[in-house]
Computed example of a mutant assay.
Amino acid sequence: MAGPHITWRPVVESDFGLLADWLSRPHVHRYWHHDFSPEGVARDFGPGTRGEEAGEDLVVSFDGVPGALVQRSRIADYAEDFEELSAIVDVPEEAVTIDYLIADLGNTGRGLGTALIRAVVAETWERYPLAPAIIVPVVAGNVGSWRALEKAGFRRVGEGDMEPDNPIDPPLHVVSRIDRPVTRRTT
Results as ranks from 00 to 15, higher is better:
G144I: 01
W125M: 08
D99N: 12
A140P: 05
L130W: 04
G111R: 13
R147G: 00
P137M: 13
S86H: 10
N107M: 15
N107W: 11
A103N: 03
V138P: 02
A119L: 11
G113I: 05
D104H: 12
V136P: 00
A119Q: 15
Y128K: 01
I102S: 03
V91K: 00
G113V: 00
T124S: 14
S86N: 09
A115C: 12
G106R: 15
A119V: 12
V136Y: 02
A103C: 02
E93G: 12
I98L: 14
A95F: 07
T97C: 14
I135T: 00
A119S: 15
R110N: 15
T108Q: 15
I98S: 04
V120L: 13
N107F: 12
V91I: 02
D90P: 10
L101E: 03
P137S: 13
G144Y: 01
S86T: 10
E93W: 15
I134W: 00
E123S: 15
A87C: 09
V136S: 04
V120I: 15
I88V: 15
V121G: 02
E126C: 10
G109V: 07
A140K: 08
G144L: 00
L130C: 01
T114Y: 05
A140L: 10
I98H: 07
L101I: 05
Y100A: 10
Y100I: 07
I134F: 03
R147E: 03
P137I: 13
A131T: 01
A115D: 14
E94R: 08
V89D: 07
V121K: 00
R147Q: 07
P137G: 13
P92V: 10
I102A: 05
D90I: 05
P132R: 10
N142P: 02
G106N: 15
G113M: 06
T108E: 13
V138D: 03
T124C: 13
I134A: 04
V96E: 02
P137H: 13
G106Y: 11
V143P: 02
P132E: 12
V120H: 10
W125I: 08
I117K: 01
V138M: 11
I117M: 03
I117E: 03
V138R: 02
V121Y: 02
V91C: 04
V89T: 10
P129L: 11
I135Q: 00
T114P: 11
G111Y: 13
